[in-house]
Design a protein around this nucleic acid. Structure first.
Lengths: 145, 145
DNA sequence: GTGGATGCAAACCATTTGCACGCCA
DNA sequence: TGGCGTGCAAATGGTTTGCATCCAC
């Protein structure tokens, strides 16, 4: 995605175009399949562009509020951020090596109606956190760890 | 569930039977359909039985380690604990009034195989957080809020 | 009696915030 | 130029921990 598109994306959402916001958004777009925590983002950005972790937090939260990023709190108590391409997706994370794979479909979609009938609730959202062992780790289970 | 059964449950799991542990486990068993945070548990227990919040945390964590309770970190950053009757269950929480309803089945079960084929991962666990609007709140949407 | 359990206060740690300075529109 | 953005350090808040005391076994 070109620089200009990202700039426009920022402007369109009422955010001033600054070095920091551009860099964070570009990075998140490049890594769109990888949920990242603030510290990882901070480490991947030159100090000349953004010198403080708190600014990274501020930028990530602004982008999330505007819907450019999704954020979710993992069970380890750390917030992960991810570029929101608009598609509704879930990921599975390998408990051993941390590898991430995307699910093609959201298993929940098929159950919206079922749950409405079962409980009478209208579903407004869901969070899904999957853990598993990836094929590589399964294969090397005996040699590693 | 009688006092003795709870005592046995504690002993069987290598935990000394103390006033605090008994009371917490009893309470959690009574409210088995309601995920509760440490502070709520603390508020529902007489100070004479357990005087400090940190002890409640310690007890809740011990019971969780032994598998007597389930714990999950909600998106609001607060840990909720719940009696683990052994059944695998998910709950939906009303965003307006906080009412909790249990799902009869786990939607994920049907998808284990699908996900294995899709990603090659063996699934070792999943966290599910549903939010929605309960029938009551839906009905009173216009009068309240 | 003794080792684990508890109470209290201090520590933790990811995240947020206050304030002074600096930069984009 | 004026107001928003940023850096730094201090605050926050749920949770954990160190240590002295107390209780279950």
């Amino acid at each position: 995605m070109s620089e200009n598109v990202l700039d426009d994306l920022l402007r369109k959402n009422g955010l001033k175009v600054t070095k920091g916001r551009k860099e964070v958004l570009k990075l998140m777009e490049e890594k769109k399949d990888l949920p990242m925590k603030a510290e990882q983002v901070y480490d991947l950005i030159p100090r000349s562009v953004c010198a403080s972790l708190s600014t990274v937090y501020r930028i990530l939260n602004q982008l999330s509020e505007k819907g450019l990023l999704k954020s979710m709190l993992y069970q380890n108590g750390i917030m992960y951020y991810q570029y929101d391409s608009g598609e509704h997706r879930h990921y599975i994370v390998c408990s051993k090596c941390g590898k991430v794979a995307a699910l093609e479909n959201c298993p929940m979609d098929a159950f919206d109606n079922y749950i409405r009938k079962d409980t009478g609730f209208d579903i407004t959202g869901h969070i899904f956190e999957l853990t598993g062992i990836c094929p590589d780790c399964k294969e090397h289970a005996e040699s590693r760890e």
